[in-house]
Simulated assay, not measured.
Amino acid sequence: MSVKNITVLGSGIMGHGIAQVSAMSGYNVVLRDIEQQFLDKAMEKIRWSLEKLVTKEKITKQESDAILGRIKTIVDLKEAVKGADLIIEAVPEIMELKKKVYSELDQVADKNTVFASNTSTLPITEIANTTSRPERFIGIHFFNPPQLMKLVEVIPGQKTGPEVLNLTVDYVKSVKKEPVVCKKDVPGFIVNRLFIPMVHEACWLKQRENLKLEEIDSAVKFNLGFPMGIFELADFTGMDVIHKATIELQIRDKKVIFPHPDVEKLFNEKKLGQKSGEGFYKYSDEKYERIQLDETLAKKCNPISLAANILNNAAWLVTNKASDIAEIEKAAQLGLGLKKPIFETGREIGIKNIVTELNNLAKKYGVFYEPDPLLVSMQ
């Protein structure tokens, strides 16, 4: 099994980014969407991105032309998937829409073609089972924007064949990305299982301790080794993305997340973060600005409950054989920008202190906080 021809379904931010990185690595790419105008917009963005690389002398004008020459745009689905070795679907994160796409795709794609869904939260096995080829179906989660982010989560479904997993991992490496395999199709995979619950936990911490956003964010940045504060990171990601992921995680596993109403409230008020000018913080219309965080503010907040939250979910992934500590640390470093390993932070705080914190929270607020057996054993 080898990959030469790739079809990307959906030409939005993720789709055209995946098409670009694939073409830059020498693949023949067909980019498909339901209307030509969407494809024209996507090609404009790819051209702009490549022009920037030429200006920065990362690639030559000739290389840029050759990359563009490897990308074709086609509206007709049957024609778009003809001869494709790998089809990467990047349509919006709506289960019914994805299932509809795959029912059409299954009819027209060659029986040997591998299907890969670029989803961040939806269950791979459930989507795969709507096709006649679940053994040739896999999850491939690029991070936004695909041109810049190094991490790609690879998620086999329950029936995914080992050769399909190997082929996907090889493809990810070939486009100069770092694959992390989530061995089980668990809610949130690796990165979102760590990140999304932590946003809610930060809201609870703010409410329970009557803290300011900047105090929590400073503690997260300076004490937990995050590249920015958790509320800042949430605004950067977008409340629409976080709210959608929260719902998906909750449907699949009640214990993964303890939702705080503020996230849904911001979403309903269309305060989506930077993209709308306001989320947890307010943003001016000018260029992207960073929130002012400092070590003095960090001293006003003890972030142990946040460290406990991310460690408990990391431990859950190990206990449930979805990943191991080394892969989780790699995913957190590349996907969340962590400057310090999660378990190293845990050891600095003291695993015993983390477990005590979780037990105290469980007594006050319920079973969601019960410590994972792995953490208990590490004391």
Rank of each mutant, 00 (worst) to 15 (best):
233 L>E: 04
66 A>D: 12
195 F>C: 08
127 I>A: 00
379 Q>Y: 05
118 N>G: 10
111 K>S: 14
163 E>C: 14
324 D>S: 02
135 E>T: 12
178 E>R: 12
30 V>K: 00
181 V>I: 14
11 S>V: 12
197 P>H: 01
67 I>A: 09
322 A>C: 13
47 R>G: 14
366 G>H: 03
77 L>I: 00
197 P>D: 00
281 Y>T: 00
85 D>W: 08
340 K>E: 14
66 A>N: 13
141 H>Y: 01
343 F>I: 05
294 D>P: 01
196 I>G: 04
360 N>F: 12
106 D>P: 01
208 R>H: 07
235 D>F: 04
87 I>Q: 09
331 A>Q: 05
356 T>H: 14
66 A>W: 10
78 K>L: 00
216 I>A: 05
354 I>Y: 03
155 I>A: 11
44 E>V: 13
349 I>R: 10
265 K>R: 14
270 K>P: 01
315 A>R: 07
263 V>T: 09
11 S>L: 14
291 I>Q: 08
209 E>F: 08
121 T>M: 03
250 Q>P: 10
105 L>N: 05
227 P>I: 00
14 M>H: 02
183 K>I: 00
243 H>K: 15
45 K>R: 09
357 E>L: 10
167 L>K: 13
75 V>A: 02
120 S>D: 02
107 Q>Y: 13
165 L>A: 06
274 Q>N: 13
210 N>Q: 13
25 S>N: 15
229 G>E: 00
373 P>W: 04
197 P>F: 06
18 I>Y: 01
253 D>I: 00
132 S>P: 01
95 M>I: 01
296 T>W: 13
307 A>P: 13
106 D>A: 00
259 P>F: 06
68 L>S: 11
95 M>Q: 06
272 L>Y: 13
242 I>L: 10
274 Q>Y: 15
230 I>G: 02
219 A>F: 03
64 S>N: 13
60 T>V: 10
291 I>F: 01
118 N>I: 05
318 V>H: 02
167 L>Y: 12
4 K>W: 14
340 K>R: 15
359 N>E: 15
327 E>W: 08
80 A>T: 10
184 K>F: 11
98 K>V: 07
203 C>Q: 07
262 D>T: 15
354 I>Q: 07
192 N>H: 06
368 F>R: 15
222 F>T: 07
231 F>V: 00
126 E>G: 02
23 A>H: 08
357 E>T: 15
50 L>Q: 06
6 I>L: 09
248 E>Y: 10
320 N>G: 08
68 L>G: 10
332 A>H: 06
82 K>E: 15
353 N>A: 13
339 K>Y: 03
36 Q>Y: 09
256 V>E: 04
260 H>Q: 12
321 K>H: 14
30 V>H: 06
318 V>T: 05
235 D>S: 11
273 G>A: 01
359 N>W: 11
285 D>W: 11
95 M>L: 09
318 V>S: 05
108 V>F: 14
316 W>Y: 14
180 V>N: 03
242 I>C: 01
39 L>V: 04
178 E>Q: 10
191 V>P: 09
3 V>H: 02
114 V>E: 03
191 V>Y: 07
291 I>N: 03
246 T>D: 05
161 G>Q: 15
32 R>W: 02
129 N>A: 12
330 K>Q: 14
330 K>E: 13
148 L>N: 12
293 L>C: 05
121 T>P: 11
40 D>Q: 14
264 E>F: 06
347 R>D: 15
75 V>K: 07
303 P>H: 01
69 G>M: 00
142 F>A: 03
5 N>H: 07
241 V>K: 01
253 D>G: 09
213 L>A: 04
